[in-house]
């Protein structure tokens, strides 16, 4: 049934859903503009703070681990863009932190909607008005870094940057859904696993230029915990040379593997959830 409905969703309807969520985001913004603007400012400040440490160190020491201060700045701009895209398309309704929806028993609400689950997950998170600040900030940093370094930007460079950003975003989403699948069975224990994996672990580690780290750490951070693929690797590849002698397409290969694993785990988890349901609410409606 779900597959049949999904088949009937046209591109126009799909884009219409984006427009709908954009409108709802605008409504949210104007309903309490003071609070919304403060939240936007706080979020922007938080992101600036998370990249400022490495930025200030690179300014103080004229670069880090063989990367010039402009290279480091470009990398930080790239990381901020990845965070910004994630926020723009997957922050609303916790579609990026999907373990929260699963862990809180809210997948039930999605299953009764007259839309296929993948379509809901792809569109519900879109918040173009309250969630665009980090992407704009990141683009600004990238432009500043490229101008500072005297890099000329051609169509190929712009396309390469866009492609890497897409792949980095795919890696974060894939990791989030892969680990969030644990929440289908253990709802309380893994309700916050997505924020641990996406924000606390890979997100935080992606701010560091791995050029200053020994090779075993570099390898660990592009394989086991692929934080290096959200900033350092793409930045190095775009600025001249993919690190560790790897192909420039390595992040794409990792993204494909993570997505395959995530699809498998999520389907299996959802099957379990559909059979057994959520145990988060008691008969009185209170959350356990």
């Amino acid at each position: 049934m779900g597959d049949k409905v999904m088949y009937e969703i046209s591109l126009r309807r799909f884009l219409g859903l984006y427009a709908l969520y954009a409108r709802m985001d605008l409504d949210f913004l104007v309903r309490d503009a003071r609070l919304s603007l403060m939240a936007i400012a706080a979020d922007g400040l938080s992101n600036a703070a998370s990249v400022s440490g490495v930025f200030l160190l690179s300014q103080r020491f004229g670069g880090i681990g063989g990367m010039s201060r402009w290279d480091v700045l470009f990398m930080l701009g790239y990381v901020t863009c990845v965070t910004g895209l994630y926020q723009l398309f997957f922050s609303g309704n916790n579609t990026g932190h999907i373990s929260r929806r699963i862990g809180r028993g809210q997948v039930d609400h999605m299953l009764v909607q007259p839309l296929p689950l993948p379509v809901q997950l792809a569109t519900e998170g879109f918040i173009p008005f309250t969630g665009c600040q980090n992407l704009l900030f990141g683009i600004g940093i990238i432009v500043w870094a490229l101008r500072g370094a005297g890099h000329s930007v051609g169509a190929a460079f712009a396309a390469g940057t866009a492609g890497y950003l897409f792949v980095s975003l795919a890696i974060i989403i894939g990791l989030s859904y892969l680990f969030s699948s644990l929440a289908f069975k253990r709802q309380v224990a893994f309700e916050e696993i997505a924020s641990t994996v996406v924000d606390d672990l890979t997100g935080m580690l992606s701010n560091y230029p791995l050029s200053a780290m020994p090779p075993p750490v570099q390898w660990t951070l592009i394989t086991v915990v692929p934080a290096g693929l959200l900033g350092w690797f793409p930045a190095c590849a775009l600025l001249g040379q993919a690190p560790l002698g790897l192909s420039a397409l390595y992040p794409l290969a990792v993204a494909v593997v993570i997505w395959a694993l995530a699809a498998l785990a999520f389907k299996k988890g959802l099957k379990y959830y559909v059979k057994y349901g959520s145990n988060r609410y008691n008969a009185g409606g209170h959350r356990r």
């Binding site: 706080a42 979020d43 400040l45 600036a48 703070a49 998370s50």
Partner: peptide, 8 residues
């Protein structure tokens, strides 16, 4: 969020 940014 604000506090984390300030402290960091």
């Amino acid at each position: 969020t604000l506090r984390n940014a300030v402290m960091l």
